[in-house]
Write a protein that binds this DNA or RNA. Structure first.
Length: 946
DNA sequence: AAGGTCACG
DNA sequence: GACGTACGTGACCTTG
């Protein structure tokens, strides 16, 4: 049992205004605006969630303003007369605040003639006198007057700003006002408040006010001192405004002894009954919260129920099958409503209807995961909720004994579908439609125009993860999040492990349920997500950057790149030989045999057996044996460390590259086809998998040989074009850094310029240091991080950072403004409007919070760079075609580099076009104040093109 | 499945 | 005054 009672007083009226401005204008199923109410509801939830926490509430109440006038208007009729009318779509939300409060079974208190602040202050004092702790959930500066500890009872009052997730105690108040809480009223009386129409003293703002009060002790003393001041504007105004100030003092003073309509003991928080809450959430279409409530199987009175563990959630998902939440005006998913299309007649019926509706969700089923080698097994279509079908094309037939089910001839079916899928008049909606584009392109169908629910989700919700609920963009997750629906899983249908069967072996009734459901869900998700785009500002990024990129990247994946198998095999062999030699040497040095590839064994050998010094690390208690550790050991005079490093390098190169790339050659095409994810990186970058072609070695000579194995076909060459220092250029532009912009404009070596600015001279050493610092800036610097990298003390690193900020003004401001804005809004934005969400940026956990801060500093820069190269990619093929260069093929993207394959004879014509498209890619949306430098190289291999 | 390590921008 | 230290990725290996 907690001994101390802790009363939370929620300033409901103030909260709703802030929530209104911060949240998108959502509406509920009836069309009532509920954005602010939603914010309010989630805040109450979070507070109730903390019931068991050390500092959480035992008692709680919400205080509201009853009407717009109070006793203060009797003193000063103009009080709050300047307040603008609340926006039209906020007004209907005020009564809903009461509903929401009641839904949580919390007391809701309001009194005529008093403002919420007075009631809050009175309740806070009453509880404090009893020795309770009180937290006022508000960020209103007037309330800061009551913060502090009562020496008699020991009761404390502090504040909680839930939007910034910040506790406000006496120290924070003093930091803000320069005076302790009991003098805040005096400062406020001097400054006045234009919003509340409190006059204060004209010309006195927060700085002067707090200085005067701090200097003289209180308002009266400050005003009394005026006659003795030297002649100044301030003196005049103080003398003139004395009465105003004194009246202002009365206006800002909170009434602390109001009658309390409800005793504090009655505010006991005893858990939240789930039924009224569920009803409220349902009524307003807060389906994600409703699911969290369901997932908790009860009231949000215990943290583990509000935030179920993974296992709990899984169980809840399975259990919620029966009572899933349908979308407003969309019926629940009914898998028995789907049709299996087995005749040409029925297929034509679906196709005609799709033409009529001009919108169809499409999904393909295949024999494998990889879109370049998988075979088409069937196609599903959806035209409305539960209006979906599956068209099997290649089921059965692998087992000669079983009878093939009735299916339309695949060629005939595809021929019938082709005009629909290629028709400009019909939008094809997919979930990760790049996959279907590749499958269908290999069947002679060029699908267009398209929409993609996965890309939509990314444009809206990148980085977002509702507490405890994943933030991914996969269909199952999206269905759960937006539709409250649990999809059939592939595992359920095809099994897993050795017993797994291909989709073509699945019986038609089951296959229809699964496949048509995917199309149905995709259709519903589209209806759910697309309308959010204009509201939440995602249109430009989705329509101008990401969506146009889908067919472009699909084409790159299909085309693939040639690798020289013999060359890779030769390298594998050399690496193996050298590894064997190193292995015996290492074992000899160690005096015993062990698995070098096992960090555990290696650590024990180095630090226990051989007795080198070095520390444990991490929760696992295992020795760290990473590169920096081993390099330190080597410097201590441990030859084994160098041997292990070399062995590791070879092992990495062989397993990840020379062996794996040979295995990745597609037998049909003879080339390597990576798969790009358009939603892989939260910042908007692409990522590359199976194999990852964005991390082919280049930094070391030995690794570089692997690039030589990426080659052009006979008669062709590879052309590599990369943006030079694009992120630093963008930083210079976005932070408006004069010297850096100048250096880029002059084509200077940017790291050398940095060295000159910082150290006065450019040597190999200072340039290297400058380069490290430049990158540190892009990544969100910390003195410890920089110190570690440069091998200097933190103090010295701090001095360098200070110098950097001084020489490059703008950087510090950028960092400050970016983190502040992300803390306020919850997301960062690129120059093209791409949002990345940072749900942990206000976390109480410093490690978590600072991690988010660093990521937030970097995201606009990395993301803008990603936007720019994506725009270049989307424009590239049309530009090359228009120039009569259809044989130039874009093969790879490596974040700031594009790799092309082209006839040797096209190099001269293509190079300037590629350069121009890349250099101009930001325009006309954004006019950068620095040029974008492009470096181009060509050669028979990727290595030679650099 | 998780942790450690290391390849890239 | 604390993080245990730079941002963003993916693949492979060992170990539990």
């Amino acid at each position: 049992m907690a001994e101390t009672q802790h009363l939370y007083l929620v300033d409901g009226s103030a909260y709703i205004f802030r929530a209104y401005h911060r949240l998108p204008p959502l509406t509920d199923p009836e069309g009532t605006p509920v954005g602010a109410v939603y914010g309010y509801t989630t805040m109450l939830w979070k507070l109730a969630d903390d019931l068991d926490a050390a500092d959480g509430p035992t008692h709680m109440a919400v205080i509201l303003d009853k009407d717009s006038t109070s006793f203060r208007n009797d003193i000063y009729p103009e009080y709050k007369a300047n307040r603008p009318e609340p926006p039209e779509d906020l007004r209907p939300q005020f009564p809903l605040i009461r509903d929401a409060t009641r839904a949580f079974s919390l007391p809701c208190i309001e009194e005529g003639g008093l403002e919420a602040d007075d009631l809050i202050a009175s309740y806070a004092r009453a509880a404090q006198r009893e020795g309770w702790n009180v937290t006022i959930v508000s960020s209103d500066k007037d309330l800061m007057q009551v913060v502090g500890t009562d020496t008699k009872s020991g009761g404390t009052i502090d504040m909680l700003d839930t939007m910034k997730n910040a506790r406000i105690g006496p120290a924070e108040v003093e930091e803000k006002f320069g005076v302790p809480p009991h003098l805040v009223g005096d400062v406020l009386a001097l400054m006045g408040d234009s919003v509340d129409n409190i006059p204060g003293i004209y010309g006195v703002g927060p700085k002067t006010a707090s200085k005067l009060i701090a200097e003289h002790g209180d308002l009266t003393a400050a005003l009394d001192s005026a006659p003795d001041m030297k002649k100044s504007k301030l003196k005049e105004r103080l003398l003139e405004g004395r009465e105003d100030a004194e009246m202002s003092r009365v206006l800002v003073t909170l009434k602390e002894d109001a009658d309390l309509p409800m005793p504090i003991a009655d505010m006991k928080l005893d858990g939240v009954p789930p039924e009224p809450l569920a009803e409220f959430l349902k009524k307003h279409g807060f389906s994600s919260l409703l699911r969290r409530l369901d997932a908790g199987r009860g009231s949000p009175d215990r943290p583990n129920q509000l935030n179920p563990t993974k296992a709990e959630r899984k169980g809840a998902d399975a259990a919620s099958e029966g009572d899933r939440q349908p979308l407003p005006d969309m019926p629940a998913i009914d898998r028995n409503a789907y049709e299996c299309v087995q005749t040409m007649e029925r297929l034509n019926h679906w196709i005609e209807r799709a033409f009529a509706l001009r919108e169809v969700a499409v999904d393909t089923e295949t024999s494998a995961l990889d879109a370049i080698s998988a075979d088409l097994v069937g196609v599903s279509l959806a035209l409305g909720p539960n209006e979906a079908c599956y068209i099997p094309l290649a089921h059965g037939g692998t087992d000669l004994l079983s009878e093939k089910p009735q299916q339309i001839d695949p060629a005939a079916a595809l021929a019938a579908l082709k005009p629909l899928l290629e028709s400009d008049a019909v939008v094809k909606i997919g979930q990760n439609i790049k996959y279907d584009l590749n499958i269908l392109a290999r069947n002679g169908i060029a699908v267009a125009p398209i929409e993609d629910t996965m890309i939509l989700s990314f444009a809206l919700d990148a980085g977002r993860s509702l507490d405890g609920i994943g933030g991914g963009h996969g269909m199952d997750e999206l269905a759960q999040r937006h539709l409250g629906h649990t999809c059939m899983t592939f595992k359920e249908v095809c099994g897993t492990g050795k017993k797994q069967i291909g989709f073509g072996e699945v019986a038609l009734d089951v296959a229809t349920k699964y496949a048509a459901e995917d199309a149905d869900v995709t259709w519903r998700l589209y209806k759910h997500l697309k309308p959010r785009l204009p509201i939440e500002g995602g249109t430009r990024v989705y329509e101008r950057v990401d969506r146009p990129l889908i067919p472009v990247v699909a084409g790159m994946e299909r085309h693939g790149i040639q690798v020289d198998r013999a060359n890779l095999a030769k390298l594998s062999e050399e690496f193996a030989k050298e590894m064997a030699r190193l292995e015996s040497a290492i074992h000899e040095t160690a005096g015993q045999e062990f698995a070098i590839g096992s960090p555990k064994q290696l650590g024990e050998i180095l630090f226990d057996t051989m007795g080198y010094k070095g520390g444990r690390k991490g929760k696992s208690g295992q020795y760290s044996t990473d590169q920096t550790t081993l390099e330190k050991l080597e410097a201590q005079g441990a030859p084994i460390a160098r041997q292990v490093l070399e062995w590791r390098q070879l092992s990495k190169l062989k397993s990840t590259y020379t062996d794996a790339l040979q295995a990745a050659i597609n037998p049909r095409t003879g080339r390597v086809h990576t798969s790009y994810s358009l939603v892989g990186a939260q910042t908007g970058r692409l990522s590359s998998t199976d194999p990852n072609l964005q991390n082919i070695p280049i930094r070391t000579e030995i690794g570089r040989q692997i690039r030589d194995a990426f080659v052009a076909d006979d008669g062709n060459v590879l052309l590599a074009a990369d943006y030079s220092q694009i992120e630093l250029r963008l930083a210079a532009h976005m932070a408006d850094v004069g010297p850096l912009k100048e250096a880029f404009a002059e084509g200077e070596d940017i790291h050398a310029r940095t060295a000159r600015e910082m150290f006065g001279e450019v040597t190999r050493d200072t340039r290297a240091q400058a380069k490290t610092i430049n990158f540190a800036i892009l990544y969100g610097i910390s003195r410890w991080g920089l110190a570690g990298r440069l091998g200097v003390e933190a103090d010295e690193a701090q001095e360098m950072i200070d110098t950097y900020f001084k020489r490059f003004p703008g950087i510090q401001r950028y960092i400050l403004e970016t983190t502040e804005s992300v803390k306020q809004r919850g997301y960062s934005e690129t120059l093209f409007g791409r949002k990345t969400w940072f749900p942990r940026i206000n976390s109480k956990n410093p490690s978590e919070r600072q991690g988010s801060e660093r990521a937030a500093i970097n995201a606009p820069i990395q993301g803008t760079s990603a936007d720019i190269i994506k725009r270049a990619m989307a424009r590239m093929n049309p530009a090359l075609a228009a120039a009569g260069l259809p044989d130039v093929r874009m093969l790879l993207q490596v974040h700031d580099e594009l790799v092309f394959e082209l006839p040797e004879s096209d190099v001269e014509d293509a190079s300037p076009i590629i350069e121009r498209i890349m250099a101009d890619a930001a325009r006309p949306s954004v006019e950068l104040s620095v040029p974008l430098g492009i470096e181009i190289g060509t050669g028979k291999s990727w290595g030679a093109a650099h």
